[in-house]
Design a protein around this nucleic acid. Structure first.
Lengths: 307, 307
DNA sequence: CCAAAAGTGTTAGGGTTACACCCATGT
DNA sequence: ACATGGGTGTAACCCTAACACTTTTGG
């Protein structure tokens, strides 16, 4: 089976830089390649685009296939089109980055081809993937000023110091604890939250906190409303995403796309080991992100985080 | 002549959103399509990528071919991969935006297929180009906080109010004259400049101002040094650009790429009419952008414009 | 019990904003 | 002469940065 065109066409692939935060440092997810080129080296999950899917769909599909993670919100980094970036043939890669909460990482099962690496301790990567990684980092640093993307790296409820450590890890700077908290609260996009919204299966949590409850420090007890607990779930900045309708243009059978099976895989769906677990640390007051308030705020003020 | 692959490949094209500033509003350059699909509609310059060039090279080449403008610095907007965005076949477009100084627009000659349109008065566009335009605008608004890209839209020497009108046009807000000037000067990236560095051919200007000269308002005369006049020329934010080496991977003859000749063209090189000329206005003190100072500043402070 | 992290306010200084009048130029 | 736009300074206010001690919790 072959495909013929009047003019030469490059192959188009996607790659995805997945960031995770373990409470201390930023991590990226890598996959060990099973085949040449760059056999046994580490690379980002990704693969070749089908004719009936957008690049976004492709990245999402590959991520699911190769890591078992179903990531809704991908941010496009751009196209990487170096003429010789893949020795097999001309391949243009459309790269994305995405952020994943620790709670979404379905703790280690078997497959060990996907692994988290601390951002400062990444092995040499296949293709031009270290170049892509650098772009991803700098893009993340930029985006964090305009979108509350940081929250996608934390569980639904988090302490102020987790949030601070995250911002410090991404931006590479140190903040004063009190000033950081004050500024974050001033933005108005945080809500107080109850304990352990995280670790409970979704079905439990709504029941458990049906009545109003109290929480707080030893100094002051604050009332909490059920509506504060379950704000709308976060979604990332999708400014670069192509919103075109997904319509089948030409139907192709999946079997033809074996080039996709580049990475080492045992089953169709494998999971990376869980993020290196943060030391539990002392529990502080818990917060969660309120997207509604953020949206309103943003609309008014051409929003930007100030640090 | 045909090209055969084992798996289906999309075509890859580039499109370029070119911004120009006439002293009053922001304009974009459009080209009238000569052929179906979308015959006689307006679209961004662009065309299909060759196998021996990066997307950046391609956009630059197409821009030269279709508008006669040689733009060095393109910023990538991202890939647009809607499955049906081109009715002919599956086409992934990598879009760029670029900024052009009025002095670079080689005032109108004959070809009238390229025209500037005020950003708020753009006709309906071919393909998904109005979507691309919206992305370009929002990207420009973001980028202007981090890179002094605004200066690429102005001639080498400009008045403070030209700069201010530009920022106001891009960001859609109004600034207080005095506060804007103070903040701009505080950044340290501006130099004072002599009159009419712009309109002179490059060969003239260096001679003309060899000795120190004086300029200034009626209130105060300030000394000017030759070194202030000719700072290094500006170059844009290229964060998303692929810096891979440009190496021939497969050599193809140009004739095969007739799909490129999509837009209405008479000659290989045509020029858009000049930007709608700004009313001359009263001349104020002139400034120019100092890239060296900007680079130093940026490196130190994780630079951001504050407005 | 001890170490480590959380909780909490104030002050000084720097930066931002808001604001008005005069003068030069061009019409 | 009149209208337009350039040139200039200051005061109030807000926000930021810097800073220390006590309490709680986990080990």
């Amino acid at each position: 089976m072959s495909y013929t065109y009047q003019f030469p066409h490059p192959a188009v692939a996607t790659d995805c830089v997945l960031f995770g935060f373990d409470g201390k440092e930023l991590n990226v997810l890598l996959i060990e390649r099973a085949m040449d080129p760059y056999k046994d080296m580490w690379a980002f999950p990704g693969g070749f685009m089908r004719m009936d899917e957008t690049a976004e769909d492709c990245a999402q599909r590959e991520l699911l296939e190769e890591t078992g993670l179903n990531i809704q919100s991908l941010n496009q980094l751009g196209a990487f089109s170096g003429v010789r970036r893949d020795p097999r043939e001309r391949v243009v890669s459309i790269a994305f980055y995405a952020l994943v909460k620790p709670s979404e990482v379905s703790g280690g099962d078997d497959a060990r081809q996907a692994r988290w690496f601390p951002i400062d301790d990444v092995p040499q990567l296949a293709f031009d993937h270290d170049f892509i990684l650098r772009k991803a980092m700098s893009q993340l640093r930029k985006d964090i000023y305009f979108e509350p993307i940081g929250f996608e790296l934390l569980n639904n409820a988090f302490t102020m110091s987790e949030l601070q450590r995250l911002y410090e890890a991404i931006l590479g700077v140190h903040f004063d604890r009190r000033n950081f908290e004050r500024k974050m609260l001033q933005t108005g996009i945080l809500q107080t939250a109850a304990e352990s919204v995280d670790d409970l299966p979704a079905s439990h949590s709504r029941e458990q906190f049906k009545d109003n409850r109290f929480y707080g420090s030893h100094r002051e007890m604050k009332k909490m409303d059920i509506n504060d607990l379950f704000g709308p779930s976060e979604s990332p900045s999708q400014i670069l995403q192509d919103t075109s309708a997904h319509i089948h243009f030409q139907t192709l059978s999946t079997e033809h796309l074996s080039m996709t099976d580049d990475r080492k895989m045992e089953a169709d769906e494998t999971s990376p080991e869980a993020l290196p677990k943060r030391k539990p640390g002392r529990k502080g007051r818990l917060f969660s992100f309120n997207k509604e308030k953020y949206d309103r705020f943003k609309h008014d003020n051409n929003f930007r985080f100030e640090f």
